[in-house]
Computed example of a mutant assay.
Amino acid sequence: MPQNSRPLLSVVAAVYNGELFLAKFFACLAAQNIDNMEVIMVNDGSTDGSMAIIEAWRSKFPGMKIIEQENQGVSIARNTGLAVATGQYLSFPDIDDDFKPGMYRHLLDLALKNNLDVVTCNGNYVYESNKKPTRPIFPQDKLQSTDVLSGPQWLKRALDSRKFLHVTWLNLYRHDFIREHGFTFEPGLRHQDIPWTTEILLAAERVQYTDEQYYDYYIHSASVSHKPDTDDTLIRSARHYMKILEMLDAINQRYPDAVKNIPACNWQIAKEGLGILHTFNNMKDPHKKKMIIQEFFDRGIWRLIWKNARGFRLRWRLGRRYLKLKKATRVPG
């Protein structure tokens, strides 16, 4: 498709039982005031009234693409939308969040002016019923607006802040860049934003960040990621993070020249690994704990974490947990 006939932006949104949020989501889209915007709604097997709401908004967004599929999770839904997108830039907002008027216009202006592969902004954590005060996602004393950087330069700066959150929804991506590298979302993986963002930034040549807070990430009781855990959900979470660590290790090996200048690429593997150990600590059933910790060792995840740990303090934190882990694998039965 010729460049001048392509939409400036394709917005790809995965929908699963989103009837409580879709009206606000579409209102946010309409407030962007971008005429040349392609909206792609992927209904991922919703069983509520989501489709009726999507259809009701169709007339407000000429050419809206609506795709229905069986429930397969957000990654496959995003891949479905990505496969049919035609815009020069891509965005992947979550439908239960709030993005401010002008967000996409401002990010597009930066992206087009500077031929960016990735452009990103700041946002806020907003808590249901104001249970906690709203706060920036990236503290502005840690990460300020930048000029154009290489992806690895921005990744180093972001990870070194120790306050960087791997997310898709604060970013716009140049579509041709995504296509040239064949990037897709990992099916069935929770928190797949971590490997996605890491690899994209290692590959990107031109990235810019603005500390303008355009996006409200809404933390609410209906969110799957904020429901109370059981042993079984903790086991699933541990397996997701084991996969993430394996993916991050493979990514580091694919980009050795960039990674050797970003020690935090190793640090984040060790840091996420500590999160897995914390997950084990929260499990109640000793036999289920024994099973998942044995899997943790058998898959080589402990070795992977230890290999990537840098510095005495981090290795000390890991080492003092090792004996507890081994003890848990010796539970009888």
Rank of each mutant, 00 (worst) to 15 (best):
R330T: 11
E199F: 02
M41S: 08
S225V: 10
N308R: 01
N36K: 15
E128K: 08
N281I: 15
K327I: 13
A56C: 11
K271D: 05
M242V: 03
A13L: 07
H287F: 09
N4Q: 05
E70Y: 15
N124L: 13
V15Q: 01
D257A: 11
N122P: 14
N115Q: 11
L116K: 09
T184E: 08
Q32F: 05
M41I: 08
S59H: 08
P332A: 08
L116I: 11
I53H: 01
P286S: 13
N43S: 12
R162H: 06
Y218R: 10
E180C: 06
G102A: 10
P256D: 04
L323R: 14
D231Q: 14
D249T: 11
G300A: 00
A222T: 08
R310M: 12
I200K: 10
I305Q: 02
D160T: 06
Q213K: 12
M283S: 13
M247Y: 04
L248F: 06
G182W: 05
K227F: 07
Y215M: 13
Q253N: 11
N33D: 12
V118Y: 03
P256Y: 08
Q294D: 12
A238V: 10
D176P: 09
R6Q: 08
A203N: 01
W196D: 03
L29S: 12
A83Q: 03
D231Y: 15
P152R: 05
Q140V: 12
F280A: 15
D211I: 06
Y173V: 06
E295T: 09
L9P: 06
P133T: 06
G275I: 02
Q140I: 13
Q213G: 12
G275P: 01
P101D: 06
V126F: 03
R6S: 14
T120S: 15
T86K: 07
T198H: 08
Q208G: 07
K326H: 14
R315E: 12
F99G: 13
A56W: 05
R135D: 03
P228R: 04
D298A: 08
V12A: 03
E199T: 03
D48M: 02
K142M: 14
Q32N: 05
G333E: 05
F280T: 07
E186S: 15
M37Y: 05
Y173M: 10
P62H: 05
A258L: 07
L277H: 04
N252C: 15
N266E: 01
I235Q: 09
R179T: 06
G151V: 07
F26G: 14
M242Y: 02
V84L: 00
S5T: 09
A264N: 04
L82S: 00
N122D: 15
P136Y: 03
N266T: 02
T134S: 06
N71W: 09
L170F: 15
V42S: 07
P256W: 08
M242D: 01
F297R: 00
D117K: 05
E68P: 03
F185W: 13
N43W: 14
A158N: 13
